Simulated scan of single mutants.
Amino acid sequence: MTHRTTLAALAAVTALALSACGGSSGGSSSEEAGGSAAADGAFPVTIPNAFGETTIDAEPERIVVIGYTEVDTLLALGVQPVAFQEFVTFPDAAVPGLGPWAEDLAGEAEMQVFPVSSPPGVEEVLALQPDLVVAVGSGIEQDEYDQLSAVVPVLARPEGSTAYLVDRDDATLAIGQALGKEDQAQELVDGVEDAFTEARDANPDFAGKTVVVTLPATDGSGGYSAYVSGDTRVSFFEDLGFELTPGIADIDAEGGFFVTISAEQVQLLDADLVVVLALDSVEETRATLEADPVFATVPAVQAGRVIYTDPLSGGGAISYNDVVSVPFALDQLVPQIQDALGS
């Protein structure tokens, strides 16, 4: 799969989503990305969630995103929020707060960015006078939901889901429903599945291989963090045909999205493929782990089956794992995986 192939596929799918209902007229902040109008009869709509249900009476025009990755999906649907939550800080971003995979989708209107270091409180969100708050990928709980939803509709995570671990397709389709763009959202979901299918078909040896996604622990313990099933980073590799290595899969994450592995447990990180998420810099993380005598004892590391991912590029894209970042991640990471596995 080539860079041109998957990004062209995303462009085609996004174009379909933007043109499905014709061009939009100016004036609404939510239309600055060039989006189409909602489908006829889409509103009012009631969407159940983990804390109750949300009724949206009319097409939203002032949307505030407090979930960590949903801004990409809104932009792909042609809707630009007035503000959104930053997930990764991109120092050289052409559009502040957006990854390189999404910046071309933004319109000219400036969006307020909530820094990753200081998520907004209820008062800050309401001060923006939104008519919809999108919180699918946030850590919102009942109290905050109740405070916000007393004033404005809140699209929260689905029933039965865990904070920060909402399935990509479920999140995309819920956002599409809230915006009156269900058909366009389904097209985006289908486009991503087609991209994964193409990648799996081109790399049949990925099927059934084990993977672990890890990074040096940041708690000063000298151990390692490893992501668990349901996390976006693991889901990306599972969609390519990999399976989470049993050493990690068998650990109870107690509702979290990662577990901490001590130096004494380092062999739990062994897999057919070890994926390292760099902390700040690929070079620094690689140097740290290559100088780590404990990490060096892992058989996969000894065999060279390790890839290091850039948090501002491929590593960031799998952390988002949304309908915009996936094609970018495939182009960035599939060649690295092939090299590591000797494919």
Rank of each mutant, 00 (worst) to 15 (best):
T232H: 15
G208L: 07
D167C: 06
N203Y: 03
L155I: 08
D205I: 00
Y224E: 00
V228C: 10
T218Q: 13
A171S: 05
S225R: 03
A163Q: 12
F242W: 09
T172M: 04
L215N: 11
T245Q: 11
V212T: 11
R168K: 13
K209V: 02
T172Q: 07
V166M: 07
V212Y: 13
Q147A: 11
G208E: 04
F242K: 03
L148E: 12
D167A: 00
D143T: 11
Q177R: 14
D167S: 10
L244K: 10
R168A: 13
D231H: 03
S221L: 08
L244W: 14
V213F: 04
L165I: 10
G176A: 15
L215E: 12
G191K: 07
V192K: 04
E193W: 03
L155A: 07
R233A: 01
D143W: 08
A178V: 04
D143N: 14
R200N: 00
A185W: 05
G223F: 03
G160T: 08
V211E: 06
P158R: 08
E187N: 14
G241N: 01
T245A: 06
I140E: 07
F242V: 11
L173H: 11
V151M: 04
V234A: 09
V166G: 00
V166H: 08
A202S: 14
T172W: 08
P158W: 12
Y164N: 02
V152P: 15
G241M: 05
G220P: 14
G139E: 07
A156H: 03
A217E: 01
Q147W: 06
Q142G: 08
Y145C: 07
P246V: 06
A199I: 01
T210K: 02
E193V: 10
D201W: 05
E182R: 05
A178C: 09
A195P: 07
L244H: 14
S149R: 02
L155R: 05
Y164C: 04
T214S: 12
L188N: 06
V211Q: 01
G160H: 12
T232F: 11
G139V: 07
R233S: 02
F242M: 02
V213A: 07
